[in-house]
Design a protein around this nucleic acid. Structure first.
Lengths: 233, 233
DNA sequence: TAAGCGTCGATTGTCGACAGTTTCGGCTTG
DNA sequence: CAAGCCGAAACTGTCGACAATCGACGCTTA
């Protein structure tokens, strides 16, 4: 099995905050695609693999359930949440909603270090695209958007973004790649940063809308190409 | 103690979906104010009161932890999350963010039944204000806003709204009342509905902004009046 | 008297166990 | 040959138990 990879060595789990550690292992396995949508998360198997009892596993699963990553069917167990095309639409809709807000707010608070941080994120993005490293490209993309939310200064908004990003990573991991041209992804971020620095609210919203709209269409297209048909949970 | 009220009769809990039931009892107790912010949620005590073992209680607590209602301190237990004035600001900021979005989207999908439903919510609100029933007024207020999110048609956005509303109910319950004039609360919703029916996006956003801005300032004022000073978690 | 320290009770974190249910495979039967 | 039934294995939901840890109380001491 070996789905829940330990960092590297043989020792499986340390002692403190077991539940949190299990939750992280599970989310990693899900975003990595080792636990694909719809897969059953058997508590006993997870517990055995990690060398612990089932109680902490169940608690971790509850954490992920509230987060929307897992879905509990009574008497049947936990399953990795399946995302229908409509779900993905909702996800991107919500993401648009909060990133617009975050971007406008971030522009109001944009100082020199914040600007530099954003620039650094973009540089990472370019570098990853240059190296044709799909995983790192997605990660750098995510970092850029996350940084905007961070600068916006609303901790709850940031947590929300992280949650959405985790769910989106599942589908992105599923389709394997985000764009055909890895460089295009980097370039499409430039107008967003430019608008942020300009500080003009309407232009910010317009560029965020456009940028996310492109991503949404792209992901939607790829997902629809992959999914065989409409599935009802 | 009797903090976790059973609906009415003596039988404490039925058998199925115990975790979900415990979670609901706990959220009810929190929003009702029986478990005030900062209160310790002792698993053993809850389990004893409900006549069950600690395992389901812990799982329910994990659900509420991801929801932001509880806060887990390792080796110390679960505590009802405390909201600083800054937290409340963040909460209202986020609420503004999603309700703007929801309102614009709802306007695009506003058909006859949706319009009627919103009107009905407002009538309930007037009725509750008329009767000077603070709890019902808050509930009707919440229903109106929730209906907008419902009409918007994004299930995830609706869940998010529910989560925010639950957290806000805690502070609202804490301050006891929302407005000095219970009728004013009803009247301030009219322009929002009017803007929705007009379908003009900018006017919708403007009215939502104004409506929520008023609520936010009011709640902020009352909370600041109650809280002794800045508290760092 | 106030501060520091040690002990005791209470609570948490984790475990193994048990009953009830679901699921999977094979077998029977039309 | 397909469909349905039956039994066993595996799994879930819940429980009680035990060790480790935390907080509080009281005692000692400067």
């Amino acid at each position: 099995m070996r789905l829940l990879s330990p960092p590297v060595g043989l020792p499986v789990l340390s002692e403190s905050d077991l539940v949190r550690q299990v939750a992280r292992r599970l989310t990693d396995a899900i975003t990595r695609g080792d636990l694909p949508p719809g897969a059953k998360v058997a508590e006993a198997a997870v517990a055995r693999e990690l060398g612990i009892s089932r109680a902490p596993v169940r608690e971790a699963a509850r954490l992920l359930e509230s987060q929307g990553l897992l879905c509990a069917h009574p008497r049947r167990g936990f399953f990795v949440r399946e995302l229908s095309p409509a779900d993905i639409d909702d996800l991107y809709d919500l993401r648009l909603c909060i990133e617009r807000h975050a971007a406008v707010e971030a522009a109001r608070r944009l100082d020199a270090p914040a600007r530099a941080a954003l620039r650094a994120c973009l540089d990472d993005l370019y570098a990853a695209a240059q190296r044709d490293d799909a995983a790192r490209t997605v990660e750098a993309d995510y970092r850029f958007h996350r940084k905007i939310c961070e600068i916006a200064g609303n901790g709850r908004l940031l947590r929300l973004f992280d949650g959405l990003a985790t769910e989106l990573k599942v589908v992105i991991g599923l389709i394997g790649r985000l764009y055909d041209d890895p460089h295009a992804i980097a370039r499409t971020h430039e107008p967003v940063l430019a608008a942020l620095e300009a500080g003009h609210a309407e232009r910010i919203v317009a560029h965020v809308d456009h940028h996310l709209g492109v991503a949404r269409r792209e992901v939607g297209r790829l997902v629809r190409a992959l999914s065989p048909g409409p599935e009802a949970p």
